[in-house]
C-alpha cells in the first residue's frame, strides 16, 4: 500500500531528517509509529500522504506517486493532524460539505461513532467546541470515510479517559482487511491493545518494523527480583514489583509486550535490536 524507496528528506537549512530510508507498509494493519520528539514521525506521515516531497527517492501510496496528490489517491487517505483545523460551521454542515469527497463515506457509521462519543447535537458549531470534542468529531469522520489509509497524529491527546476507551472500540471495529491505520503517538499505554505492528523511528531510520507477535516471539518482557537476574537484559527499569526487564527470548517463553519498555530497549540497544529483527544492512 505504501512504499518508500531510498527517501532522503530535509527541511530548509537543517540537517537531513531521513537519508536513504526504505519502508514498505501493508494493509490490514494498525501501525504504531513511535519515536522521540523531533525524530520525524509527523514528517514521515506527511511524506506518505503527499503533503511533503522527498528530496531524493520515491514514495508510492496506493500505487500513485504521493507527491502528485491525485484525487484517486486522496479519496483513499485521510490525515488527522495533532492540531486540528475546523471551519466555523456546524457538525451537520461539516458532514454535508466534506463527505461527498469520499465515495465510501457512511453517514450511518458517522452517526454511530458520534453516538458512541456521546455527541448527539449536530447543530453545534465546531469552532465553539472543546479541543477534545473537535477531536472526537474528526475521528468519527475519519473512520466513517472508510478510506484505505488513515493517518493519525496523536489521536488520543485531548480525549478524556472514557473517550480513550471508546476510541479504541471505534478503531477496533473499523479495522479490516482493506485498511491501514498509522498512528503516531507518545501515549502508547492508551493504544497498546490496538496496535498490531510497531514502527520505531530513530536517527533518521526505521529501527524496528515488526508485528507484535514477532516481537513477543523474539523478546521477553518480565519482572525479575534481583540485579543478577537482570544482567543479560537489553533494558531494565526498577518498579515497585521488582525489576521490569526486556531480554532476548532465547527459550521462546510467552510474555506480554510493554510498548514503553520495548521503545526504551530499542533506543538503548540499536544494533542488538536490528540484529534480532534482522534489520542490519
Amino acid at each position: 500500500m505504501i512504499q518508500l524507496k531510498n527517501v532522503t528528506f530535509r527541511y530548509p537549512r537543517r540537517k537531513p531528517l531521513f537519508s536513504d530510508l526504505s519502508l514498505e507498509l501493508e494493509g490490514n494493519h494498525i501501525y504504531g509509529l513511535l519515536g522521540k520528539n523531533g525524530e520525524g514521525k509527523t514528517t514521515l506521515m506527511k511524506l506518505m500522504s503527499g503533503l511533503l516531497f522527498a528530496k531524493e527517492g520515491s514514495i508510492e501510496t496506493l500505487g500513485e506517486k504521493a507527491c502528485l496528490r491525485r484525487p484517486k489517491m486522496l479519496e483513499e487517505i485521510y490525515f488527522l493532524p495533532e492540531e486540528m483545523y475546523v471551519p466555523s460551521i456546524s457538525i451537520q454542515e461539516f458532514e454535508t460539505i466534506f463527505s461527498p469527497f469520499y465515495p465510501r463515506f457512511s453517514s450511518e457509521q458517522f452517526h454511530n461513532y458520534m453516538e458512541l462519543f456521546e455527541i448527539t447535537d449536530f447543530r453545534q458549531n465546531l469552532m465553539r467546541m472543546s479541543h477534545g470534542q473537535k477531536k472526537k468529531v474528526l475521528i468519527a469522520f475519519a473512520m466513517a470515510t472508510n478510506c484505505q489509509i488513515v493517518f493519525m497524529d496523536e489521536p488520543s491527546n485531548g480525549l478524556d479517559i472514557p473517550s480513550k476507551s471508546i476510541f479504541r472500540k471505534v478503531m477496533a471495529s473499523a479495522a479490516d482487511e482493506q485498511r491501514m491505520i498509522i498512528i503516531s503517538t507518545h501515549q502508547v499505554r492508551d493504544l497498546h491493545s490496538l496496535i498490531d505492528t510497531i514502527l520505531i523511528l530513530d536517527q533518521g531510520e526505521i529501527l524496528l518494523n515488526a508485528p507484535v507477535e514477532q516481537i513477543t516471539e523474539k523478546l521477553l518482557f518480565k519482572v525479575v527480583d534481583t540485579e543478577g537476574e537482570a544482567q543479560t537484559a537489553l533494558y531494565k527499569e526498577d518498579t515497585l514489583r521488582g525489576i521490569y526487564a526486556v531480554f532476548e527470548n532465547i527459550n521462546r517463553e510467552d510474555s506480554k509486550m510493554d510498548i514503553e519498555l520495548l521503545f526504551n530497549s530499542a533506543l538503548c540497544n540499536r544494533d542488538k535490536i536490528k540484529e534480532i529483527f534482522s534489520l542490519q544492512k
Binding site: K46, S49, G50, L51, R69, R70, P71, L74, E75, I77, Y78, F79, P81, E83, M84, Y85, F101, Y102
Partner: peptide
Amino acid sequence: KKLANPSGGIMYLTLPASTFE
C-alpha cells in the same frame, strides 16, 4: 490564506480534488 495554518493547509491539500480543479 488557509495554507498559512499547517492544519488548515493539511485539510485543503488533502481534499480529494486535483490542483487544477
